[in-house]
Design a binder for these strands. Structure first.
Length: 369
DNA sequence: AAACGAAACAACCGCATTTAA
DNA sequence: ATTAAATGCGGTTGTTTCGTT
């Protein structure tokens, strides 16, 4: 048995909205609000529209302070950064961009932003391909631990650091340009992170305090998996206490929560973003320094995020280049697992990572195994 | 000027989640 | 606790606009 239809399909108008319909809907909602019932609303005001259609029209076009088009570089960066972190959760991404709707952002991503990034990426890919292969062989010969860059090297050119494990996308801080509340709001952060799978210590018996942007929410994430994989260790920094969870069941949602927390942390407009890199391996520190001392690198095009040597492997680039859509699963796999069939030595790479993480964890948690 | 294709935008559809009875 | 309705979301499709030939 199928689901009951939300409206009488035969009696509802479809297609573009006329100015009259818009006016009717807008004036009613302006005066009375939605009444908490979209399904009943069209009948009330004599619109032959499905309630869902009314809702969509209101949310995407009629409600006040909606912006269309003219995305700034700042917005581009934020969208890309969040997409990398949480995937195609457009409503969440939209919540970070005042005046933007999820539909708008989704369309913008699908029609322009993705191409813009991939165009850049492909150019980079071509120019670096030869360089990368040469250097990879060199490193493999000279070092047993790929995670540890040569400390003697003063070379901060990112193209010479690309042989190590991919860093997470890191963005220069983007100051909020409006007074609108986003994740500065305690309740919003809480709600959002709970939704993504984070837990608050008041719900459990913990006193761990994680502070995002000065907000003293108490959060805890089962983050073991990420700590032993690719994520920079954000959580133990001076403003954030991370306690590794005893659970090994780090869900995707928890990973999402961490990633977006990190993303938001990185872009929250304060200067403590540099702490993200403390306690990490030298490479990540250097990359952090590099990024923040050289915002041009990522300004407007996010080359770091999509450079072929860092986060996105050939599987994605191939599918993207051929016009296929890139799924979040693919993206995550590319971030968390090494590229299969690439030039990287998978096991060697992972082993190096594990060693490096164990070492840095030992430094940070001397008493812990 | 017409035809065509690509890009951009608007809206729909179906599924998942939330809410209320 | 259960269930149906309402809502929200993301993927997809349809339509319009723009640029090129």
């Amino acid at each position: 048995m199928g689901r009951a239809p939300c409206c009488d399909k035969a009696n509802v108008k479809k297609g573009p909205w006329s100015p009259e319909e818009d006016a009717k809907l807008k004036s009613y909602i302006d005066q009375h609000g939605t009444g908490g019932n979209w399904i009943a609303l069209p009948q009330k005001i004599g619109l032959k529209r499905c309630g869902k259609s009314c809702r969509l029209r209101w949310l995407n076009y009629l409600r006040p302070n909606i912006k269309h088009g003219g995305f700034s570089e700042e917005e581009d960066n934020l969208i890309c950064s969040l997409y990398i972190s949480i995937g195609s959760r457009w409503s969440i991404i939209a919540a970070q961009l005042p005046g933007r709707t999820d539909n708008d952002i989704k369309n913008y991503w699908n029609t322009r932003l993705k191409k813009k990034l991939l165009g850049k990426q492909r150019k980079e890919h071509q120019s670096r391909k030869g360089k990368l292969q040469d250097h990879h062989h060199q490193v493999k010969r000279s070092s047993g631990n790929l995670m540890v860059p040569n400390n003697n090297s003063n070379n901060t050119n990112s193209s010479d650091q690309i042989h190590y494990w991919p860093e997470l996308p890191v963005l220069a801080p983007i100051p909020y340009s409006t007074g609108e509340q986003r994740f500065n709001d305690h309740a919003a952060i809480r709600k959002f992170l709970i939704k993504l799978g984070g837990r608050f210590s008041q719900d459990h018996d913990h006193d761990d305090v994680m502070i995002l942007d000065g907000t003293s929410s108490s959060l805890q994430f089962p983050a073991d998996q990420l700590l032993s994989s690719t994520t920079p260790q954000l959580y133990e920094q001076s403003s954030i206490n991370y306690m590794p969870s005893s659970s090994m069941e780090a869900s995707n949602n928890s990973i999402d929560a961490q990633l977006i927390a990190q993303t938001l942390y990185n872009i929250d407009g304060t200067d403590h973003h540099l702490q993200v890199f403390q306690g990490q391996n030298n490479l990540q520190s250097e990359l952090g320094d590099l990024v923040y001392s050289n915002p041009q690198r990522i300004d407007g095009n996010l080359e770091l995020i999509y450079s072929e040597n860092t986060t996105v492997d050939n599987r994605i680039m191939t599918s993207a280049a051929s016009g296929e859509s890139i799924g979040w699963g693919d993206m995550m796999n590319a971030l968390i697992s090494p590229p299969v069939g690439s030039n990287y030595d998978h096991q060697e790479m992972q082993q190096g990572m594990m060693q490096e993480c164990a070492f840095s964890n030992q430094l940070r948690y001397p008493g812990m195994q």
